[in-house]
Simulated assay, not measured.
Amino acid sequence: MERQKYITRFVIVISILLFSVQLGFSQSPYRDQIYKAYSRGKMDKWYELMHSCEKNVNSNSLEEQLELISYYYGYTAWLIGAEKYDTAEEYIDKSEKIIDKLLDESPENATLLAYKGAYIAFTIGISNFKAVYLGRRSMRYIDKSIELDPENIQGNIEKGNSMYYRPSVFGGDKTKAIKYYIKAVKSFEKQGLVVSNWMYINTMTALGQAYEATDQIQLAKLCYEKIIRIFPNFMWVEDELYPDMLKRNNL
């Protein structure tokens, strides 16, 4: 099974369906179907749902615009993983226009700041040579997000992604990435944002991969088994990551 069928590294990267209140999250008409599309690797279905959300989003609702941004985020990450860079750039542009407008209105919104840093990182993912001048800019937004709200889920996810994927010579540290992924996972669980939440399961998967990358194999095994137990039809872990890890480590 090709990994590009799933939301790949930059989603482990990726986004969160974090709304301003839990009630808004539970009432989203797209959440369950987006999760099902993600869990089965059906990005054509994701695309349909995303554009339905786009057509119906209330431009006066921060909550609904954050939801749309999260869908753009997941789709952009998949496009980059599939090397569909031209289309990815279109969604980066669409997303940043919304984010910049919202930041003008709410310059200290930690979730928006984290998204801003993430979308700059997407641009680096398309053109690595841009890391020289965009890398620090991305981190300024992410660090400010965590400074304003140390418990912010999106901020911790993006900090974890940065630590995981950045080369060690530029400050990357996979062990430190684990700390931020764990913090995000705990916040999801504390806030009750677990059921049918594609970003929760994606962050759990990132944590499992980080454990494996740092040779903490038993912790990786437990993490993947938790995912399979809670989300029994998540193909990426159940059919690929977990069995491959067992085979590599003779478990």
Results as ranks from 00 to 15, higher is better:
Glu63Cys: 09
Asn56Cys: 13
Glu63Leu: 03
Ser95Cys: 12
Gly117Glu: 05
Pro107Thr: 00
Ala114Thr: 00
Ala121Gln: 10
Tyr71His: 12
Thr111Lys: 00
Ala114Val: 07
Ala110Val: 04
Val57Ile: 14
Glu90Ala: 11
Ala114Glu: 08
Ile80Arg: 04
Ala110Pro: 08
Lys101Cys: 04
Asn60Ile: 02
Lys84Glu: 15
Asn58Ile: 08
Ser95His: 01
Ile69Pro: 01
Tyr72Asp: 10
Lys101Pro: 04
Leu62Thr: 08
Tyr72Arg: 02
Tyr75Val: 10
Tyr91Met: 06
Leu66Asp: 05
Thr111Ile: 01
Asp86Val: 14
Gln65Asn: 13
Leu103Lys: 00
Thr76Gly: 07
Asn109Arg: 06
Lys116Met: 13
Asn109Val: 07
Ile69Phe: 07
Ala88Trp: 09
Val57Tyr: 05
Lys116Pro: 01
Glu96His: 03
Glu67Asn: 08
Leu68Gln: 03
Tyr91His: 12
Ile99Ala: 07
Ser61Cys: 10
Leu68His: 11
Ile120Gly: 00
Lys101Trp: 09
Tyr72Ala: 11
Asn56Ile: 02
Ala88Asp: 08
Tyr72Asn: 10
Ile80Cys: 11
Gly74Ser: 10
Gly81Arg: 09
Leu113Ala: 02
Ile92Asn: 07
Glu90Ser: 08
Leu66Arg: 07
Ile80Ser: 03
Trp78His: 13
Glu64Gln: 14
Ala110Lys: 02
Tyr115Ser: 10
Leu112Trp: 05
Ile99Asn: 12
Tyr119Asp: 02
Glu83Val: 13
Lys84Val: 07
Glu63Ile: 12
Tyr71Gly: 01
Ala110Cys: 10
Glu67Arg: 10
Tyr73Leu: 11
Glu96Thr: 10
Ile99Asp: 05
Ala114Asn: 06
Phe122Arg: 00
Ile98Phe: 01
Asp86Leu: 14
Ile98Cys: 04
Glu64Ser: 07
Glu54Asn: 15
Lys116Arg: 15
Glu54Cys: 08
Ile69Gly: 03
Val57Gln: 04
Pro107Cys: 15
Ala121Lys: 06
Glu54Ser: 14
Glu89Tyr: 15
Ser61Asn: 02
Val57His: 03
Ala88Thr: 06
Ala110Trp: 02
Asn58Gly: 06
